[in-house]
Amino acid sequence: MSKYWWKILSALLVLTTLIFGLRAPLAPGVPMVSPDKINNGVTSVTITGYNTHFTENPDKVVVWLTNGDATFCPYELAVIDDTHLRVTFSITEKIADSFFDLYVNTPKDGTMYLPSAFLQSKLEVSLQPDRTENCAVNLSADPGGFNYPNQPILNETIRNIFYHVPTWFAMLFVMSISLVFSIMNLGTSKTKYDIAAESAAHVGLLFAFIGLATGSVWARFTWGAWWVSDPRLNGAAIAVLIYLAYFILKSSVNDKEKAARLGAVYNIFAFMMMIVFVMVLPRMTDSLHPGVGGNPAFSQYDLDDNMRMIFYPAVIGWIGMAVWIFQIKYRMGKLKFKQLMHEQI
């Protein structure tokens, strides 16, 4: 029992993160407005909510726009259903900024926010805007509760953080195990280290494929393409290529000891080259990927405390699972090797 505690722990962690990660609701939000322009004069717009409850307490729904320091409130507001509002604004003043941010507040959902919701059309943008007062009053407090932030563009896919990111962490972890065993193999020429290095590389490749698949689906929904040319993505592709080449190299040499030596040399060489590329270069160039270039990492604004509560256990759980799979694979490899030796004798 005492030996297996970490396996049970990681299985439980993965299970909990699967349940909570997929079951907990997304915070209410206002992801869509149509049309997305505010004209000079009167503009009627439809605001579409997500997980919102507009019909409970329709009198207490407050909608306002911000532009610079100024706030604009609608002169007409109608609740259509739980997720739709019809709002009419009348704006003719000079404004400070080309974009309006949208806020919606209800007692049940708290304050919801859509940045740059509306583009101004035919209004005058000026350094001395006409209005600076605040008309948003009688706001209800945030109700709280366990939910994930409703980010524009990300929406429901924000849950992928729990699966996509830990997968890459797990991959880097087992790839490092593979590297360490390769170094040990070069130092001692013991077959068991070679088996361990190869097993770890196998598991790492598996996680790399999972990471590519989850990332690709995510990219499709947020950036609009299955694959974009980006330093971080290119690095991931190169990592996969390197380990595929490693397996080809090992299988192309018949002498086991020689294959182990060649494989270890290539593993160390290729890993170092990859690390430089994956770790160093993306930080120096522009990228769509979070945590890279001009984009802030998740920790800065996407990852709130609720997400952290699932994210960190998910990282530990998935790394534990990877190590567990690696262990099984390693033992299988050792048994196979023993069998082979037996047959030869």
């Binding site: 290119n234 690095g235 190169i238 290529l241 390197i242 080449a245 080809i248 190299l249 192309s252 040499v253 020689k258 060649l262 040399v265 290539y266 060489f269 290729a270 080259m273 990859m274 430089v276 590329f277 270069l281």
Partner: peptide, 25 residues
């Protein structure tokens, strides 16, 4: 590395391309 195997030229490309790609970019 490739010289130590039987399939020298083919393996050279397989092993070399992933290693050289970062530099090439």
């Amino acid at each position: 590395l490739a010289a130590q195997t039987d399939n020298n030229l083919g393996l050279m490309a397989v092993l070399g391309l992933p290693v050289i790609l970062p530099m090439l970019l």
